[in-house]
């Protein structure tokens, strides 16, 4: 199973920086793993713990929240709030028996296309090492069969 495992990662990207960085990475023809599916958010401060938990509950192998560099938030402190919320979700996942490394916060500037590509690679490798989300329907079915 692990040989063919292609992680499914959801990235909540701030429109002012990380989303632009993802766009720039594409424009620069930088290659990065296609495992990361981007969700545009107006600010990472909009990302609620429930968004992340439900994403994991619904079977995503990993979730990253990508905001502006610290001090550069368009809304002043949305990315600081997001960082705290990511840490909160990590604590909850730990309590619930899921690896907290499946959720991670990144800070990427709008001009940093290579930074986004690197973050996507790093997250994909982390999740590949962890293996599939034990909550994905596919994994649960295979566990039952075993």
């Amino acid at each position: 199973m692990s040989e063919n495992f292609e992680p499914r990662i959801v990235a909540f990207c701030c429109q002012y920086c990380s989303y632009a960085a993802a766009d720039l990475a594409g424009s620069m023809r930088l290659s990065y793993p296609p495992n990361v599916k981007v969700v545009l958010v107006p600010c990472t401060g909009r990302v609620d713990p429930l968004h992340i938990l439900r994403t994991i509950e619904d079977g995503a192998d990993g979730v990253c929240v990508a905001g502006c560099l610290e001090g550069d938030c368009h809304f002043l402190e949305g990315n600081f709030k997001a960082r705290k919320r990511v840490a909160y979700v990590q604590r909850i996942l730990n309590e619930a028996g899921v690896e907290d490394a499946r959720v991670r916060m990144f800070n990427i500037a709008a001009s940093d296309g290579p930074g986004f590509a690197e973050a996507a690679r790093m997250m994909t490798e982390t999740i590949r090492a962890l293996g599939p989300n034990p909550l994905s329907t596919k994994t649960e079915k295979m566990t039952e069969e075993l």
């Binding site: 429930l50 938990l53 439900r54 994991i56 909850i92 996942l93 619930a96 899921v98």
Partner: peptide, 19 residues
């Protein structure tokens, strides 16, 4: 409302992890 949503999700996740 929000904390109930988070807790329900966490409990569902934990119970699925327990099989």
């Amino acid at each position: 409302v929000k904390e109930v949503g988070v807790l329900a999700s966490a409990l569902r996740i934990a119970r699925r992890r327990q099989g």
